[in-house]
Design a protein around this nucleic acid. Structure first.
Lengths: 193, 193
DNA sequence: ATAAATTCTTATCCCAAATCAAGGACTTTG
DNA sequence: CAAAGTCCTTGATTTGGGATAAGAATTTAT
């Protein structure tokens, strides 16, 4: 097998042995999705864990009033899913959507449980990946409620300059918890400095 | 050993066998903390994973301007830590504080790694606990940025009625991302309905 | 190339919640 | 029982960013 993003991730980040890598890779299947397609929606069950070979996904939430917030964007070598739903076969309240034509590697519940119970390096790597997400969410929660829109945007262009070029501004506005109009005004203000 | 909150959690939620429970319990040590004491602060390394036998902890973040946000409260049978710091021995930016005199069970990095690599039921249970936190954080992020202060408070008294009685209002205000004054006004308004 | 749809910007108005300020209600301590 | 310290409430004022509306710019489709 040729080197794939999933393989490099397992080798280099998860430190999985060559032999185990082969076992793990076989548990995944490729999936191509078109821009704007959903992997799952609120009310559905998250049936896979998704690894991004190429492309960009976002996870988002819609409340009862139809208002929407982007929880995160993930790009190449990112993991997405909703394990609370995945592990217990119960509906999630979140949505996972492709923002570009994307190439994914997906693993089913059955295979994931096999991997986690049989391949220790995978388990530990997965716990780490979860923790990174966890930490990111904690910081995002604090920042989202404490920073001004301008501070949020300045942080974003500093921490995520590539996403700025890659995504439409209204998605970035949703991610930063402001209206597109506010984002537009901030960008103008900063440009004039 | 008598039945302890940690033991029941392992048996009933994690489905750990009796034999494994004994092994796991031995990896923990008890710790008593006084109200307002910190388990770790921003800039320090989180050296343990904390299980709450009795009491209440909060994790919070302070930004550069000294503004503070409570990420979560955890009470009996809750897990707290910051694994990104714990696993890599690098400083965290978060704080963990006891809000009541509390009895904890703590596990060191060495013992935790032993447990996770040797006792499968513990590993799976831990992944689940992480996921629950993860899901809670996603929802909280979305709600914190989309709901009005009144909506936040109404949700809180519905979902966390016990915390309302247990914690001072200024902590609840921090948790709900509003000022104490705003919370006070909302409570008055609701009381008058 | 033209039309249609999508995305982004700009301007005006306005209100909800922050800020500032002060006082009241409790609780703890000496 | 003062006194000091917390914690909570209430009032007055200010303002940042949402809502609304409309038009400009860009992309996609025909």
């Amino acid at each position: 097998m040729d080197s794939s993003p999933l393989l490099s991730q397992l080798r280099q980040v998860y430190k999985v042995s060559g032999k185990d890598c082969t076992r793990i890779i076989q548990l995944f299947q490729p999936l191509e999705v078109k821009k704007n397609e959903h992997l799952f929606r609120s009310g559905e069950i998250a049936r896979y864990v998704y690894f991004i070979d190429k492309g960009c996904l976002r996870q988002y939430y819609i409340n009862n009033n139809g208002e929407e917030r982007t929880i995160y964007f993930k790009t190449e070598a990112g993991w997405c899913s909703e394990l609370v739903s995945f592990l217990d076969n119960k509906p999630t309240e979140l949505n996972l959507q492709a923002l570009e034509d994307s190439q994914l590697q997906i693993i089913s519940q059955k295979n994931w449980i096999y991997a986690v119970t049989h391949i220790q390096s995978f388990t530990l790597g997965f716990i780490r990946a979860q923790q990174d997400t966890n930490y990111m969410l904690k910081k995002r929660l604090a920042e989202a409620t404490v920073e001004t829109p301008e501070e949020k945007y300045l942080r974003f262009i500093k921490e995520e300059p590539l996403l700025l070029q890659r995504l439409p501004l209204y998605h970035i506005a949703s991610y930063l918890a402001m209206t597109p109009e506010t984002l537009s005004r901030i960008r103008k203000k900063i440009a004039n400095k």
